[in-house]
Amino acid sequence: MTTDEAGSQRLDKWLWAARFFKTRPLAVEAINGGKVQVDGQRVKPGRAIRPGTRLTVHKGELEWCIQVMQLSRQRRPASEAALLYQEDEQSRLKRQEQVRERRERGLQAPTHGRPTKRDRRRLSEFIGRDG
């Protein structure tokens, strides 16, 4: 992993290198939309961050509260990218619980939307109407 010689790096570039976002434009869009905060404040994509900076990243329903440990100019494999930051224990547990709940909801039958052809046939049989 290469560390920036100046000791700081653009926020959007770091989020991309740490694999929070697939592309830098997606990182910029999230930062501009207020989904990423540095030390509890909204910032611009060009904000310089250093090791020790605290970030809050929101993606969908999930939230990461992390501390920057290292900087990297390149996007590396996920195992190496995970070394760039350290997540708070409370944040990690909360996120894992949200993922578990979402998986459980996904296993249940959908309760909204239009009925399928099979649902309509069963309803017709139940009501006693001829299709």
Rank of each mutant, 00 (worst) to 15 (best):
D4V: 13
E5F: 02
A6R: 15
A6L: 12
G7V: 13
R10M: 10
L15Q: 11
A17K: 04
F21K: 09
K22N: 04
P25Y: 03
A30Y: 09
I31H: 03
N32H: 06
G33L: 07
G33K: 14
G34Y: 11
K35G: 07
V36R: 05
V38K: 12
G40N: 12
R42M: 09
R47Y: 11
R50T: 12
G52W: 10
T53L: 04
T53I: 04
R54P: 00
T56R: 15
V57Q: 02
G60L: 08
L62D: 14
E63M: 11
W64L: 08
I66E: 02
I66D: 01
Q67K: 14
V68N: 09
V68M: 11
M69H: 04
Q70D: 09
L71P: 08
S72A: 15
S72C: 15
R73W: 03
Q74S: 13
R75E: 01
P77R: 10
A78N: 07
S79N: 13
E80S: 03
A82T: 11
L83T: 13
L83P: 00
E87K: 08
D88Q: 15
Q90F: 03
S91P: 08
R92I: 01
R95T: 06
R95I: 09
Q96M: 13
Q98P: 04
V99T: 06
R100P: 01
R100T: 11
E101R: 14
E104G: 05
G106I: 02
Q108E: 15
Q108S: 11
G113V: 07
R114D: 02
R118L: 13
D119W: 02
R120C: 14
R122S: 03
E125I: 04
F126V: 06
D130M: 00
